[in-house]
């Protein structure tokens, strides 16, 4: 498998490059050796070291966790629905989580973080079930575009409600508007490391689904004869996707398209193997989010473009390109 090994190495190398770039690049350029020194030989009065340790480490960690979570969630969704256009962001999961968090903090006055994450799960689950229920079941379930449209409708509704809430509360708006655009800078009071730990656990759960998902890909009957319970696997995957999307949204706001784009990238490298798809989605998801964030820091210097904006730009172009590849039918 030299090709697969090469793909894996390339993905990991790209992720490492992205991590270094995310630590080094920004309003204040910090040379790579200074970044290195900030970890091995920390100098508390060196401002470069302070920037790296105080700001950019958190930001980079959020990027890695959110990127990996979204990419894996996208890979799971695409495998489960056998729909190349499926993505938690497109399906409205992130918008649902964002609305739940906004409702909890702005309307409900919930300040502590644990209930907010639980709310995010509930929001993601609600949005996802509606979009999936409408878009992927019943007559004409095979049309990939239908799921996208259902997700677009759910997203539009949820985003309208979210905007209406924050608009009525100018104070909340100014606190939340960067996070609502999708940003790695972190909301105030977000405990980064515990969330990252949860992301790691959820990704591990996702990897447990590889074998049964591969079996389901052969069809439910074949899966049953291989000893896989299709219903149980679907539930397992759906719950994992919801948890991943909720965690990613809690960390970085509603970022769309990472879950759409990264699995396509991985499939171009390794073909339709579900195991490799999920594993390589982790480094590539992290790399894509971090690189988008770095680009956003460079382009609008000394300001920044939120990472959610950059990913949506790239992802929108990708979706248009995928549309271009859809089979043409005679008029």
């Amino acid at each position: 498998m030299p090709r697969l090994a090469f793909a894996a190495l390339a993905a990991i190398a790209l992720a490492l490059v992205a991590v270094v770039a995310s630590l080094a690049v920004g309003a204040q350029q910090i040379p790579a050796h200074d970044v290195w020194a900030a970890f091995v030989d920390y100098d508390a009065v060196n401002p470069s070291h302070q920037i790296v340790r105080e700001l950019r480490v958190d930001r980079t960690v959020i990027g890695v966790a959110a990127g990996a979570a979204l990419a894996v969630a996208g890979a799971l969704t695409q495998s489960l629905t056998r729909n190349p256009l499926a993505d938690p962001g497109l399906l409205g999961l992130n918008a649902g989580a964002a609305l739940a968090i906004v409702l909890g903090t702005v309307v409900g006055g919930i300040a502590s973080f644990a209930p907010q994450v639980l709310l995010a799960f509930v929001g993601a689950a609600g949005a996802g079930l509606v979009a999936y229920g409408v878009g992927a079941t019943g007559a004409g379930a095979a049309a990939p575009a239908r799921l996208v449209l259902a997700g677009a409708a759910v997203t539009a509704l949820l985003t309208a409600v979210t905007s209406a809430i924050v608009v009525a509360q100018p104070f909340a708006l100014n606190q939340l508007r960067f996070w609502l655009a999708g940003s790695l800078t972190g909301r105030a009071g977000v405990p980064v490391w515990p969330l990252v730990a949860f992301v790691a656990i959820a990704i591990a759960l996702a990897l447990l689904a590889v074998r049964p998902l591969s079996a389901i890909a052969l069809g439910d009957d074949a899966a049953a004869s291989l000893g896989t319970r299709a219903g149980l696997t679907r539930a397992h995957v759906l719950v994992t996707v919801i948890v991943l999307a909720g965690l990613a949204t809690s960390l970085a706001g509603p970022i769309a398209f990472v879950g759409l784009a990264v699995p396509h990238l991985v499939r171009a490298l390794v073909g339709p193997r579900i195991g490799w798809l999920l594993v390589l989605s982790i480094p590539l998801g992290a790399a894509v989010v971090l690189l988008c964030d770095v680009v956003g820091r460079i382009v609008a210097r000394p300001g920044e473009i939120s990472v959610g904006v950059t990913t949506a730009l790239l992802g929108g172009v990708l979706l248009a390109a995928l549309a271009r590849r859809m089979r043409a039918v005679a008029p």
Binding site: A145, G316, A320, L322, A323, M326, A328
Partner: peptide
């Protein structure tokens, strides 16, 4: 192509 038009539109709308 109608369905293409719609998916392309959703993508461009996101941009």
């Amino acid at each position: 192509q109608p369905m293409r038009l719609i998916v392309a539109g959703i993508g461009i709308g996101f941009v």
